[in-house]
């Protein structure tokens, strides 16, 4: 057997030679080129938005007369310029913005732009190709729908106050319970130290009532390690208050969790990655500055607007069906009125 080994190795190396030519990554330039006809139409309605002299985002033309939708949080109060696919460049002015969806409307002085045509994102299912249109011939990224549009319950965006990790409690919730009930309290965690127990029902955080796990998590995520919170608990039909000093998630190094570290491996992420009420998730690897542009399916239909490079495996788009109803309100110079998110029927 030992004598056969060298031959085996040679065969193995030869096999790799043969197969090598085929080991073309999915996102190779050759494959991205195939999407040129797919993005051609929407590219005519896609612009590059510069904040100061920095490429901040992409934008989508929504009307002939110069209204352009883009990603809000990348603009950062700078002087805005919009560059068109034909090289033309125009000054732009910020009008309305919508913080939950991170969308902003800018206006340029023009009369003959090509507006985008929207399609409901529901036509594309998990596993279907998507291309992220840029202000050029090639797509800025390609991938597939990872999860079709879904509502993120309890999504609430609060601007980060100095960044850093959110506080850690150390418990697990009962997902089947209509409310917030503790299923397990982990050992040596702030929750255990505070005296919380399995089957405790959490009624309120800092006197703010919580109806479900998502809401509870959304409130908790605003707190930092070291913060003290007051939980109102129903234990054996008696209401009690518990003070908990939040800790740091085990395994966190320098305020960065292991999950944060893994997510930042391999690609640059957007600053804003959470709090969007409805998202379509895809596996394309886009640059943060390429958010704000259209996401199209293989037929070139516009499913929505890319809004965040959110993690190693995920890029988010705001679906067309969420974007469209916002457009009119964004044409006034103020933050768009907050409307309750429509429940799916």
């Amino acid at each position: 057997m030992k004598r056969l080994l060298p031959l085996f190795v040679v065969l193995f190396v030869l096999a790799l030679y043969v197969e090598q030519a085929r080991s073309q990554p999915t996102r190779s330039p050759q494959i991205i080129q195939l999407f040129r006809p797919v993005v051609a139409k929407s590219a005519k309605s896609t612009v590059r938005v510069l904040a100061g002299d920095k490429e901040a985002a992409l934008g989508v033309v929504i009307s002939k007369d110069g209204w352009i939708l883009t990603k809000y949080s990348e603009l950062k109060g700078n002087k805005l310029t919009v560059k068109f696919i034909d090289g033309k460049s125009l000054d732009a002015e910020l009008f309305g913005w919508d913080v939950p969806n991170d969308l902003a409307m800018v206006k340029v002085d023009a009369a003959d732009l090509t507006p985008i045509e929207w399609t409901d994102s529901t036509i594309s299912k998990a596993g279907h190709w998507v291309a992220s249109t840029g202000a050029g011939e090639d797509a800025v990224a390609i991938g597939v729908v990872s999860v079709p549009a879904r509502e993120i319950k309890g999504a609430k965006f609060t601007p980060p106050s100095g960044g850093g990790a959110s506080g850690y409690l150390g418990l697990a919730l009962d997902l089947d319970f209509a409310g917030v009930k503790i299923q397990e309290v982990f050992k040596d965690t702030p929750a255990q130290k505070a005296g919380l127990k399995a089957d405790d029902q959490i009624l309120a955080v800092n006197k703010e009532a919580v109806a479900g796990p998502e809401e509870f998590l959304a409130i908790l995520s605003k707190n930092k390690p070291g913060d003290e919170i007051k939980l109102t608990i129903n234990r054996d039909e008696k209401e009690q208050d518990f003070k908990v000093t939040l800790g740091t998630r085990p395994g966190n190094k320098g305020g960065k969790s292991r999950a944060d570290m893994q997510n930042s491996m391999g690609s640059k992420l957007s600053d804003r990655r959470a709090g969007f009420p409805v998202i379509l998730q895809h596996d394309s690897v886009i640059k943060p500055s390429d958010c704000g542009g259209p996401l199209v399916n293989l037929d070139g239909k516009v499913l929505g607007i890319n809004i965040s490079r959110a993690g190693r495996t995920e890029t988010y788009a705001i679906p067309s069906e969420v974007v469209r109803p916002l457009l009119e309100a964004l044409k006034t110079k103020k933050e768009a009125p907050k409307e309750p998110i429509k429940k799916k029927t």
């Binding site: 080991s23 990554p25 999860v147 998730q281 993690g311 495996t313 995920e314």
Partner: peptide
């Protein structure tokens, strides 16, 4: 399930190619 199970999120699909065996 990247990031662990998330309520209301179907298992997450990623399409790709084999690079090395």
């Amino acid at each position: 399930h990247p990031g662990g199970y998330r309520q209301g999120r179907a298992p997450v699909v990623r399409l790709g190619r084999m690079l090395n065996t």
